[in-house]
């Protein structure tokens, strides 16, 4: 079975820690690796693709150490590199990459043609890479990752620079591969890109795996996270008085014409606030969560982990 396994993996870059005690196991299907820039996504991808070794722990592909040349035959890797061998044509590049897996020239040619067809680049494959747009480069990179029909596919920001139509096609392709039994791990910092097809989401924050589960599970955790909410309502003081008595509310502060409310469990608070507003005891004019940014979400997940 196609499987990626990280077991207590830590990777140092000199004094800097890339990832810290990361453990997960992924089987067939599509998984998303989500995190902000510098969170350690690329380190996870490089470890999984055997480019670098872990400082501590084990990384394995189908039970083989990811560093070994045998394990690399099971995986296809689409790196986040944008410029490479500009004078080569797309066709030459993909064929060269296929030959690196040890295929004969004839077999490499056949697989190259098939892979270019798959990513929709057959007609433009004879052009030099220097003339390609970023989206076309992504497709060529994808072709070289898919050409040997790997069981594990690692995609580092595969949708960057791809137009909306192409993005939809590629997402369909990833979903199809996942359904076929391929283990697809997509690294991204735009979760909405892959939320529809990712069965599992891994969230990395500052090198730590802070959440792992289905998107619904992660959403439910986030629904009950602490939050700061700004409210504008009429009348203000009775509302403040009522809110301070709620179990879900930690503190209430009057700031000019609005209330700044520190909430313990956002999901429960919003349900109760909706119900109270519907009774018409006060008129709610504006409601704005103040710390919904990615950092706040990550901070919560980090604390929760």
């Amino acid at each position: 079975m196609a499987e990626i396994c990280f077991d207590q993996v830590t990777r140092f870059y000199g004094p800097v820690i890339g990832i810290n005690q990361v453990s997960f196991t992924l089987g067939p299907g599509v998984a998303a690796l989500f995190g902000a820039n510098g969170a350690g996504k690329s380190t996870v991808m490089r470890l999984a693709s055997g480019q670098i070794r872990p400082s501590l722990g084990q990384v394995s592909i189908n039970g083989l150490p990811a560093w070994s040349t045998l394990a690399k035959r099971h995986l296809g890797y689409c790196p986040d590199v944008d410029r490479f061998y500009e004078e080569m044509s797309g066709w030459e590049f993909v064929q060269f990459m296929v030959q690196l897996h040890g295929y004969s020239s004839r077999e490499a040619r056949r697989r190259t043609e098939e892979a270019l067809e798959l990513v929709g680049m057959s007609a433009r494959a004879q052009r030099p890479l220097a003339t390609y747009s970023q989206g076309m480069r992504q497709r060529i990179k994808l072709a070289q990752a898919l050409a040997h029909q790997p069981e594990v596919l690692l995609l580092d920001e595969p949708l960057a620079g791809v137009d909306p139509g192409g993005r939809r096609q590629l997402l369909e392709l990833f979903a199809h591969l996942g359904d076929q039994g391929c283990t697809v791990l997509i690294s991204t910092h735009m979760l909405e890109e892959v939320e529809q097809l990712a069965q599992v989401v891994l969230v990395l924050v500052q090198g730590r795996l802070v959440a792992q589960g289905t998107l619904d599970e992660i959403r439910s955790w986030l629904a009950d996270r602490p939050l700061i909410v700004a409210l504008e309502a009429e009348p203000l003081r009775p509302l403040a008085g009522e809110l301070i008595g709620w179990e879900e509310v930690r503190s209430v502060q009057i700031d000019g014409s609005c209330l700044v409310v520190q909430v313990r469990q956002a999901g429960m608070f919003f349900r109760r606030l909706n119900a109270a507003a519907a009774q018409g005891r006060w008129q709610l004019r504006r409601m704005e969560p103040l710390d919904t940014g990615a950092e706040a979400v990550f901070r919560y997940l980090h604390q929760r982990s």
């Binding site: 490089r46 693709s49 055997g50 480019q51 560093w67 040349t69 045998l70 690399k72 035959r73 995986l75 890797y77 790196p79 590199v81 410029r83 490479f84 061998y85 990459m97 690196l100 897996h101 040890g102 070289q144 690692l154």
Partner: peptide, 14 residues
């Protein structure tokens, strides 16, 4: 310079 080493080291080459 262009980080092409990624391609080699992820392709069954040590």
């Amino acid at each position: 310079r262009q980080r092409g080493v990624s391609f080699y080291l992820a392709h069954g080459l040590s």
